[in-house]
Design a protein around this nucleic acid. Structure first.
Length: 994
DNA sequence: GGAGTCACG
DNA sequence: GACGTACGTGACTCCT
């Protein structure tokens, strides 16, 4: 090893002093380099590896023509020592926004100091001073002695040091920064950089600057006025009103900023400049260190250069795997961060329209990766949350949200129903652990006549909402929620329409439907390795549960702020996956816009005729009473017909009727199919039971329950539509479920008649005809089926004719019924057993039908085989529009589980494509109606049907618009060969419109 | 809280 | 030849 000039101690002309900003290096390396871990124990060492490679290149400079000339004669790695610096003393907010250190970065700090020592290089830090001040002081002294200086850092705060003798060097971009580069960045020479920074401020370090002045303006002003002091003195001359006023009003703030950004060049150095001379390292010690780190390549290189035997040197015992406590404090989230990082390639599937670039919340991949890492690696620290009690602090948070451009929002209310719950407070998050809760109507104080029991120190609701509203509607700030439709509705009732927004639940749904749940707690566990506070821990559960406004405020505040914190972290992790997995279009076209569409539908609600339902309830009760009398007489005893257990005992025990089946749990099966069969054999009791059950269902689930859902103020029923509930992309409806209102039986349709239009209005029902069969013809590419749809044939009759050779004219009903059952069976991923069951025919016969079907309609079998194979290989299937439905058990060893998943996967492509189509129609519907100046409003969606409420006089004009939007919904994303057909009708009630 | 049943597409 | 089935939901009632 050719020796460095070891005699070199006194710095003078011709020397090259290299100063490395250690802390900055670690951060940049951490974010720029892959999350490398030591293989034996997963110790994170990415930054250390980069650092060692850099040091090696530096000390080897000149030996192999390396570009870092001249070779360093003096070198120090400089670190920040403590948080408390003179800058904090003059301005406490300085660097107050610094995020918590990522968990897998923290252990790398001591390692980097170790690495510096292993290279026998100086490691410098001094309490009370930032690394930048030390660097400035060394640079200043070296320069004074005529030496050349290189500062290894890309920190703009150091750019003020650059001049003819001092240059900077960006280790990540491998790029030198001289006077010219500084001018490019700041628009001024290096000696004016401080003045620019004093004016422009710095949001990262919390340097205030002068409002309304950025780097460009600052440079321009300085070009005109020379320097900061002159500018501030002559500020009254400035023409632009706002700028002039700000410069005068914030002159002191500018001067304070100058104190903050000006580097101290006269720190009394603990380690004198002469002591940082580069000396030859001990090859043994260096190799021992590198070996302990398990940097195979570098270890070999160093050993070769020094001509030492790697095998003869033991890894540093204090650092090698298992011997150190460096892993302590690392939590499982670190592993998650690595796993997540792996999925982050720059890969974007062609054809995907990608994440919209100009939109708030868009982040370049590299930054997204850094944020993602930070979100997962920074442990949740609830002690850092703030409970906001003053309007001024709320304004601060709102300003911070504007600065960041992305804010997570969560509302806390008195209940689960967004149409009725009252707002209690809200939380915001702008970064990991950077979250607050704003309590508004928490109670617990004395419930006096005037105080309403409100706790003190809460911002008046009106003031808080007035402050919040502009942020929630600011087009430049992305609002992130988890199940945002809830918060959207709560806020809309208070006059706030949130936009633009993202929903982490929906992002997860697009990426992982069928693979994992999308609730906040499971998402937090899965992606952050963090268990949030449970609602029950705050409000209790069961009978003793209290509303959120009565919970202890400290606990409530932590809970609420954490929800926003976790939501923002999830967004940072999940959002980049949309682009990298090619699902941004699915999210943007089929999910996100539906939040507002569905929220508006839910808010409208639908009118019901309570009197009619009450009358029906009485009718049903009478019918049940009569049946109960018959039933006890036939059974010879009185029992509860609603108890399957008791009924089973009566039918198959006491009466000993043969042909009973057992449920999977061993109980007698008394399902409708079983009772139906017994009834056909002539048994009277099962018939009565079936009738009784029907009435019981209609009475309890519909006639009695629906009126209880009528909203006290709107007088209408507001269902809730879930966007992320099914594996296939369908919506679901609940509380009440308005997607299963009876229609198949005469008695049941009486319920449907109770859904009515407002006075002067009609209900329009528009439904897709045979949409899933049409999609089967399309996706399975079956010409005869396609032709049948193009010719407008009766598809079931045509199927029957094709299979059984019966002419369509005069076809017996039974023949068509069988064909219809087969068509449905195909959609469900047919099995001989299932078809046999459905048609009550022997399995062999059903098998023969299926065989016949496959022969007559080539393409169907291939479609099913292909779908099975694809699902098996990928674990998911995709709809026509790219929605993914996951089937993790598709390769289960258990044949029945496997077959079940195969059928579900086959069905999912059809059901899911149909769901996508109606979603597209819904997204466009409001705009189309508005463009046609129609006031029709969507009220409900029932999978292939949309229900509207329309003024009488607009009915005729509305139907064609609705039909067109629905029939053309697939375009332009997909051009179907098979036409879609929509039937639409208007009437006073839902039954007659359908 | 799970099981059984049944309403819908 | 196993295995036990049509696909996707939500609400109500029993009963442990």
């Amino acid at each position: 090893m050719p020796a460095t000039d070891a005699h070199h101690e006194t710095v003078d002309t011709g020397d090259h002093v290299v100063l490395i900003d250690g802390s900055a290096y670690i951060f940049r390396a951490y974010h720029a380099l892959p999350p490398l871990t030591r293989s034996s124990d997963k110790l994170p060492v990415g930054a250390v590896a980069g650092f060692c490679n850099m040091l090696w290149k530096l000390v080897r400079a000149g030996q192999n023509g390396g570009g870092f000339a001249p070779k360093p004669t003096h070198l120090a790695v400089v670190f920040d020592k403590s948080e408390q610096t003179f800058r904090k003393d003059i301005y406490p907010l300085y660097k107050a926004q610094r995020p918590e250190l990522p968990e897998d970065l923290r252990p790398q700090f001591p390692l980097i100091r170790e690495a510096t020592r292993a290279f026998d290089l100086a490691c410098v830090e001094q309490s009370g001073f930032e690394a930048d001040d030390l660097i400035a002081t060394y640079a200043e002294e070296a320069k004074a002695r005529g030496a050349q200086v290189t500062v290894i850092s890309s920190d703009k705060d150091l750019m003020q040091l650059v001049d003819g003798l001092v240059r900077m060097y960006d280790p990540m971009k491998d790029k030198a920064i001289g006077v010219e580069e500084v001018f490019e960045k700041f628009g001024v020479a290096p000696d004016k950089v401080v003045d620019v920074q004093s004016l422009a401020g710095d949001s990262v370090d919390n340097v205030p600057g002068v409002p309304g002045i950025g780097i460009k303006t600052a440079a321009q002003l300085l070009a005109e006025y020379g320097d900061l002091d002159t500018l501030l003195a002559r500020a009254p001359e400035i023409k632009q009103t706002k700028r002039r006023e700000n410069l005068i009003a914030f002159a002191d703030q500018a001067r304070l900023s100058r104190q903050l950004v000006t580097l101290k060049r006269d720190v009394p150095l603990d380690v004198p400049l002469d002591d940082i001379a580069v000396v030859e390292p001990s090859a043994t010690r260096l190799v021992a260190f590198l070996k302990a780190m398990e940097f195979a390549t570098l270890t070999r290189r160093v050993a070769e250069a020094y001509e030492v035997d790697v095998a003869a040197i033991d890894p540093d015992p204090g650092l090698r795997a298992g011997a150190s406590s460096l892993m302590a404090g690392l939590d499982p989230a670190t592993q998650t961060a690595e796993a997540a990082g792996d999925g982050l390639g720059p890969r974007v599937t062609p054809g995907d329209e990608g994440a919209p670039m100009g939109e708030p919340g868009f982040t370049p991949l590299a930054l997204a990766a850094a944020r993602q890492a930070e979100a997962t690696a920074t442990p949740v620290d609830r002690s850092r949350y703030e409970t906001v009690t003053t309007l001024a602090r709320l304004e601060d948070w709102i300003a911070r949200a504007r600065e960041v451009g992305v804010v997570a929002v969560d509302t806390e209310t008195t209940g689960l129903d967004p149409m009725q719950a009252e707002l209690v407070g809200f939380s915001l998050a702008t970064g990991p652990n950077e979250a607050c809760y704003v309590p508004l109507t928490h109670k617990g104080g004395d419930e006096g006549l005037f105080s309403e029991g409100l706790l003190p120190d809460q911002i008046p609701v009106r003031d808080a909402l007035a402050a919040l509203k502009p942020l929630m509607q600011d087009p430049a700030v992305l609002k992130v929620g988890q199940n945002l439709k809830y918060d959207w509705l709560v806020l809309r009732r208070l006059g706030i329409e949130v936009a633009p927004y993202d929903d982490t639940m929906l992002i997860s749904y697009v990426l992982d439907a069928g693979a994992s749940p999308h609730g906040m707690d499971p998402l937090s566990m899965r992606w952050l390795g963090h268990t949030p506070i449970k609602f029950e821990e705050v409000c209790g559960k069961g009978k003793g549960q209290i509303t959120f406004d009565r919970a202890p405020l400290d606990k409530a505040s932590e809970y609420a702020a954490e929800d926003a914190d976790v939501t923002l972290r999830l967004w940072r992790v999940l959002k980049p996956r949309l682009a990298s997995e090619g699902k941004a279009t699915v999210y943007e076209t089929l999910e996100r816009p539906l939040v507002a569409v569905l929220a508006r539908m839910e808010a409208r609600g639908i009118r019901i005729d309570r009197q009619m339902l009450s009358r029906l309830s009485g009718e049903f009760a009478q019918g049940m009473g009569r049946l109960e009398a018959d039933i006890s007489e036939m059974a010879g005893e009185s029992f509860n017909p609603g108890s399957p257990k008791q009924l089973g005992d009566i039918l198959f025990g006491k009466m000993a009727i043969p042909g009973g089946r057992k449920t999977p749990t061993g109980a007698w099966s008394t399902g409708a199919d079983v009772l139906e069969e017994l009834a056909e054999q002539g048994h009277e009791l099962p018939r009565r039971i079936l009738d009784w059950r029907q009435l019981q269902k209609l009475k309890s689930t519909y006639a009695d329950a629906l009126p209880s859902y009528v909203h006290p103020e709107t007088g209408r029923v507001h269902s809730s539509f879930a966007l992320a509930a099914t594996t296939t992309g369908r919506l679901s409806s609940s509380e009440p479920n308005l997607q299963n209102i009876p229609v198949r039986s005469e008695e049941g349709r009486k319920i449907r008649k109770a859904f009515i239009a407002a006075p002067g209005h009609k209900l329009i029902s528009a439904d897709y005809s045979q949409i899933e069969l049409r999609l089967l013809a399309e996706i399975a590419d079956t010409p005869s089926l396609r032709q049948a749809f193009q010719d407008g044939l009766d598809i079931h009759a045509m199927t029957a004719s094709e299979m059984f050779g019966v002419p369509i004219e005069g076809m017996p009903g039974e023949v068509r019924r069988r064909a219809k059952a087969i068509n449905f069976g195909i959609i469900y991923g047919i099995s001989a057993f299932g078809l046999a069951n459905q048609l009550s025919i022997p399995r062999e016969e059903a098998g023969a039908y299926i065989k016949r079907y496959f022969e007559r309609f080539p393409g169907i079998r291939a479609y099913m085989d292909e779908t099975r194979a694809f699902a098996r290989e990928h674990g998911y299937v995709e709809t026509l529009f790219g929605r993914r439905c996951h089937y993790p058990d598709i390769s289960a060893k258990n044949p029945s589980i496997r077959a079940f998943n195969e059928r579900a996967a086959i069905n999912a492509r059809l059901q899911g494509s149909a769901a996508d189509i109606i979603r597209r129609a819904m997204v466009r519907m409001d705009g189309a109606l508005e463009a046609a100046r129609l006031s029709a409003r969507m009220l409900l969606q029932v999978h292939d049907e949309l229900i509207f409420e329309v003024p009488d006089e607009e009915v005729d004009a509305t139907i064609p618009v609705v039909r067109e939007v629905m029939e053309l919904a697939p375009f332009p994303a997909v051009a179907l060969k098979v036409p879609l057909k929509v039937d639409a009708r208007a009437a006073e009630n839902w039954d007659e419109a359908h």
